[in-house]
Amino acid sequence: MKLLLIEDEAELAKSIQEYLNVNDFVCEWVSNFSEAINKISIYNYDCILLDLMLPDGNGFDILTELKKQNKTDGVIIISAKETLESRIEGFNLGADDYLTKPFHLSELLVRIQALIRRKQFNGNNKIVFNEIEIDILSKVVTVNDEIIDITKKEIDLLLYLIGNQKRVLSKAAIAEHLSGDMADMLDNHDFVYAHIKNLKKKLRNSQCGDYIKTVYGLGYKWQNE
């Protein structure tokens, strides 16, 4: 998978690159508008991560340029700008997702995965991890071909964990992912524990491997045994 990261903040860009390159992603990075325009006209990307405020131009113009060149690259806007107008304008210009800074890298990763899934599989959305199979559209999870009873939130958590497999996920990151818009108001992340516990129990009850590891003091990790 080829990704293009358009971001002027070098330190942030480095971290994003580092986090994403572990997967089967190749993440290229440009830090300004003109370089970005060069890259998008030459190559095709599976996903473009776009910062709106660039030193020599506006991220929206990159979206316009993509449209002009009839490119169908998926675009996730990553911006500190968080207004309804900028969101609407972004989506109108063809962006697929909008992630406000600051975000957790794990959140960015699952958003990229979701976007690529939507772009490539045209609706046939199944995620398989060993004996676990998740149908994203119908929200059905089967373990060893048996449907398990699982809530929407637990599916969300499962996808998040599998999407970020082999990474340590802090409780704060999981809480922010699960609570969505409410995250800014929540100051107690203890509910994550309850969700993890429930999910673990449900998986264990259906003879599923114990993939969810507790990382002492830090959070949780999904790991193949």
Partner: peptide
């Protein structure tokens, strides 16, 4: 927002390092 974003990203990277000791965690 940006420094916090960098901060957050660095922490996310840091906790994934295999050489984090219990004291550090």
């Amino acid at each position: 927002q940006t420094p916090i974003a960098v901060f957050k990203a660095k922490i996310d990277t840091l906790i994934n390092r295999s050489d984090v000791t219990q004291g550090q965690s």
